[in-house]
Nucleic acid binder design. Sequence first.
DNA 1: ACCGTTTTCTTGACTTGTTCAAATCAAGGT
DNA 2: ACCTTGATTTGAACAAGTCAAGAAAACGGT
Lengths: 144, 144
Amino acid sequence: MPSPSQIERLLRDASLRVTAPRKAVLAAVYENPHADTETLLAATRSRLGSVSHQAVYDVLRALHEAGLVRRIQPAGSVARYEARVGDNHHHLVCRSCGVVADVDCAVGEAPCLTASDDAGFAIDEAEVVYWGLCPDCQSRPAAR
Amino acid sequence: MPSPSQIERLLRDASLRVTAPRKAVLAAVYENPHADTETLLAATRSRLGSVSHQAVYDVLRALHEAGLVRRIQPAGSVARYEARVGDNHHHLVCRSCGVVADVDCAVGEAPCLTASDDAGFAIDEAEVVYWGLCPDCQSRPAAR
DNA sequence: ACCGTTTTCTTGACTTGTTCAAATCAAGGT
DNA sequence: ACCTTGATTTGAACAAGTCAAGAAAACGGT
């Protein structure tokens, strides 16, 4: 969990201007892994008092383009963000409640990341999503 | 590419009522792999003359729930459907134009499908998406 | 072959998540 | 301190998909 000054550092090093919304949104992403935009908007407001809807969208895009956050979007879900970038980890997604958990890449890095036939594509990333039911949803089946 | 009677068979075997829209949509999915809903709507209309927006959505959902079509939805893309079900294949997605291609599962089935730590989830599927640039988009970089 | 039940299709309004655009405002180099 | 460039606010717009009510069609039983 980076300190405020580390947050500033991260922004500056990415040659992004350091503004209150950006610091707050980035901190919120660190504190709420896999959170959706609405959650991050709420978290940001609880720090700053008020930020626009749009600012959070813009900031998340800027952070994403700068490589400071990763954007994930499992099918049927809204966009979610996480600050854990740079490593090659994957995700578990609950079919029932949509909650997301991290998984480290199982087999080193090789097999999963190489397609048997790339059809001429220049592949730069292999993403693995494991679908299932989270512990909570297993214990109350089909409930909710 | 199944014949009309095979299409009917597929529907009946899935205990779905056989209707003109269903036959047309299912045939359209066979003919347009990885097509989005709008494309399928157009393809269906070219067979039937007119079908509602809603009917196509309903039919696609019914076919999906019956396991006759697979729904894929790469991040940032609309829902796409394919009739190739039952085998464990994955997808290549072009970051630039969004086109999707099939890849057979590289390493048999074992390593990719087992998470190193399942965090208590009951996993029923592992989905792999390879991101990159398709041959066309490589030759006209950043164009479009 | 017809009937009734049940499911599906049509129509049209509506929600949700996200983006666009114009005007205002602030960060940070000079 | 100023100025330029980039960020934020405001408010509208957009696209994909969903909801709901009634009309229509499928198919099992008679």
